[in-house]
Amino acid sequence: MTWAPKHIPEILAAAGQHLVLSLLSVLIGGIIAVALGIVCARRPRLYAFALTITGIIFVIPSLALFALMIPFLGLGMKPALVGLSSYCLLILLRNVVTGLRGVPEDILDAADGMGYGPWQRLVRIELPLALPLILSGIRIALVTVIGIATVAAFIDAGGLGTIILMGIDQNYPEKILVGGLLTAFIATFFDVLLSRTEKAIVRWRSD
């Protein structure tokens, strides 16, 4: 360890960029998935179509996906954000829809009969009940995106991938190791954090 101790601000900056990139991507993807999920949940044909599209995006290799963005968005953060957020759409959409569809019929009937409007029912009953599944979708998406975001260094989006890439170019194993371990650490951190949040939120499920 000779490089890392002398370059801590640089490493922290890359880690910060990495975090912003990942969190922002999942946030954008999450907003789109929730909106899309609400529209799709009670429309099976539309849902099948949305799953196909998001599924196709999901199977495109990440490097190819970023490369495809370059002609439209150039290099840097913008194409990386678009790529990463579309990448996690499949995971998020599936969990949002499964969560919404999992709300029992009798609960919806009671809500309608009591005088909840469609919007009130969605916000106060359906989304809260789907929340555990939506959260677990966010967790899986975030962990996935934190890993894939390293590849975004290829299109000049910054993040810990830059350090790894530097290590590969310069044949400098310590840089590869620092970038890789830090990425793994961030991913694990969010995995644990969100798992705990899920458990805290579903406390009504246990006796």
Binding site: I107, A111, I125, P128
Partner: peptide, 11 residues
């Protein structure tokens, strides 16, 4: 409005 399965909101 009362139904057989009660339909209480679990959350």
């Amino acid at each position: 409005y009362v139904i057989q399965q009660v339909g209480l909101f679990p959350h």
